[in-house]
Amino acid sequence: MIELKHITKVFHTQKGDIEACHDVNLTIHDGEIFGVIGYSGAGKSTLVRIINQLEKQTSGEVIIDGEDISQLSTQALRQKRTKIGMIFQHFNLLWSRTVRKNIELPLEIAGMDKELRKQKAKELIELVGLQGRENAYPSELSGGQKQRVGIARALANDPTILLCDEATSALDPDTTEQILELLKKINRQLGITIVMITHQMEVVQKVCHRIAVMSEGRVVEEGHVKDIFEHPHHTITKRFVRDISNKATNNQLNDDLKAIYPDGILLRLTFDEDIARQPIVSRVIRETNLDISIVSGNLTNTVDSSFGILIINVLGGSQEQYHHIIQVFKDYHVNVEVI
């Protein structure tokens, strides 16, 4: 169990004091995935570094399994850190080492025997699904693969806690999904407590059991993900929830449209700046002999170009003809999406 009690952190800079954390109180239970969400500058990265004492708090206590780790000697703290894994936004791998050697680094630091290290690295490589890439250098890996190495490295000394500092922020959505699945699997299989720092609401929504929302160094809201989603109180939380529900309403909107226009097909056409001012729709109607009904449209004009989105309902044709009309639009360089 991780208990943060009245954590305050003040950075003294030339421009004056900056309070990165103000009286933060959190309890993170064993085996849970706990998310800390906030916009940049909210103090969440500082908070996660206080958990493994990469940053020392100005005041307050960090208690891990009943032990106040801010009171530990340097030696004891280093020992403790081997049991707290950490992964980073930019992976922080050593380019001079291969995948296997990167994973072995924390074991070397802990003074483990060479043969045991090899064995352990092999197991970890399998756990994160990097078989066959053991001898590759980080420069030869994709972002997702690099983060897998980062995860394997963080798990090398069998930690009980895994800290994730914006671990998916530098990855594309698909890769993010895969990494989150991997983290969930690790949490389930190994029972590790995971603390995730992120500014992406989708991330906490997908994996976290409980979350804390941070703003200007304070925890403004804390609770189960579901409760926070359903009843956001603070303005910051509401903003996060709105961001993500906007994406959800897009899908909702599509479903609604389909219900209203059950016949024919619905197409979302995107007109780029180059073609937005051409009479494409009327040409397509003439060429295909199909009926088109305009459902909704939106055209944005700037000084020298236009950009438009048009949702249309195509009626009275066969499957083949629908196929044809999509092709015709595409021939006019219109981006077509079937709803």
Binding site: N52, L54, L77, R78, R81, M86, F88, H90
Partner: peptide, 14 residues
């Protein structure tokens, strides 16, 4: 890269 130094500190390196 300062990040790699931070990472090694987090691993408990002296």
């Amino acid at each position: 890269d300062k990040g790699t130094i931070e990472a090694s500190k987090a691993m408990g390196a002296s």
